[in-house]
Design a protein around this nucleic acid. Structure first.
Lengths: 140, 140
DNA sequence: TATATACCCGAGTAAAATAGTCAAGATTAA
DNA sequence: TTAATCTTGACTATTTTACTCGGGTATATA
């Protein structure tokens, strides 16, 4: 689980999309403008979201993107997974030279990072996109 | 809270130190060897740990480092804070141009990252260094 | 006191990752 | 047909990370 702007932008853009998704497809140009994210970069991100069936695209004039699932059913973990590919925060055995082989005092921290991943993951697993837009609407 | 090898190394090295801390100071050379971490890099890391009163140094021949606190009382959050300086995983208003100003639909995700930080922080707040070494000793 | 062992510290740097841009399309509504 | 919009792969500037380097300083011990 890398936490970079790519994941952040994806969540922001989808939250925006959810807000404007009522009737017609939303073009990236609009999201780009409203959220202040580079259009070209958004395109990259939405291609990934599309590949993972998070959004559906409608081409041509008047086209844009729509959510594939309802915001109430879309977990943030799905979004991050779609754009970030890497799911581990830290892994101990990058180069298995001295890193982690299970014996001696070497991999003292192995289980820690596993636990951490579970912990972070549970946060995103239990969070739906709709919770964001609700928060926003309340201006909480 | 950036999660990089610097934080990882710090935790690994301190866990190692806690294991060998019984009688005499532990030289970085030994930790470097056992954990497979560059000695020069470890020095950098331990300077920070020292500044934050996590370890104490003893110079000269026969010298090395010892833990300043008991492993049972040393929270992982202190360690990460000491070496990483940055505490936020993602922040929404890097350049406050369009990022986050509290109005319109812009900062939809603002509270999300706050929550996330709290969530991750609580993990490290509730974890003591001694829990790591115990895990290791049990070969769990 | 000489010497080796260790910490101390600022500065520099190579590699990797991130955050984009660019160019050339393909579709489709109006 | 034309403008709007998505599609795709490749390219690139910037930033961050993960180190290295070169010179210290302090102290135990022979």
């Amino acid at each position: 689980m890398k936490l970079t702007t790519k994941g952040r932008y994806a969540v922001m853009a989808l939250a925006d999309l959810a807000n404007f998704n009522k009737a017609s497809p939303v073009p990236l140009r609009d999201i780009s403008f409203r959220q202040g994210i580079s259009l070209l970069y958004l395109e990259q991100i939405f291609l990934k979201l599309k590949k993972h069936n998070i959004v559906r695209s409608i081409r041509g004039s008047g086209g844009g993107y729509i959510l594939f699932k309802k915001a109430e059913e879309l977990k943030l973990s799905e979004i991050f997974f779609a754009v970030d590919e890497n799911v581990k925060t830290i892994n101990c055995n990058k180069d298995s030279k001295k890193g982690c082989n299970g014996k001696s005092s070497k991999c003292i921290t192995h289980y820690l990072w596993d636990e951490l991943d579970l912990h972070i993951n549970s946060f995103f697993e239990n969070k739906k996109l709709s919770e964001l837009t609700k928060t926003q609407n309340k201006k909480l």
